[in-house]
Amino acid sequence: MFSPLKIVVVDDHQLILDGIMSSLKEKGNYEVVSSTNCDDAFAKIKEGSFDILFTDLSFDNSSFSTKIESGEHLIKAIQKEKIAIKIAVITGHTETNRLYNVIHNLKPSAYLLKNKCDATELNFAIKKIMNNDVYYSHEVHQKLIKRACVEIQMDEVAIQILKELPKQSKISNLVGVIHKADGSPIKLRSIEAKLANLRIDLNAVNNTDLILKAKELGIID
């Protein structure tokens, strides 16, 4: 029998904090500690050996004496001290800018949205986290894919590849068809690398799936 996972939850709203705590206790055997501000949470994390941190991003209750103002700062402080703890974000922030920056720069193990989250998702996320996987809420995924769409749309070469790929029987046939902006042809290796990146960006399992997703998302007609 394993000892129960030790979890810290930080949120400035007591109601939400209570909700998360009850959801956790509902489904599993966890040892949960809560805090309403980052400074306190950071002190607790440094003291005891916790497995997972759940934190909000913005804290409205900060005062002049507050050292750590936001979830981002808390995560940075932990990463700076190299404390071994899995980090999950649970927040209401759905703006791509915040979301993308947190995921891109801080690389949390999970990004959950408070308003859509329930006990089942929470526990599923914990399982994934402990399995060294990454879990994002469905909406977060959608946001990231949309962002990828915008990026892909700016990439003339990617658009060309996506448009030409369904017409060709083999990837190697794309050589000589795809050109850079200055008119020079692109090598097979570059084309394959680009396709691999596109599959990751659009969460596609293979090239056929990639084309379908691109059409679905409106990247190509």
Partner: peptide
């Protein structure tokens, strides 16, 4: 990056936004 993030928030398959 911020501009891409901004545009992503309004991008959808029914309202495509392109940046050049």
């Amino acid at each position: 990056d911020q501009l891409v993030n901004l545009v992503s928030d309004y991008f959808s398959s029914t309202c495509k936004i392109s940046i050049r």
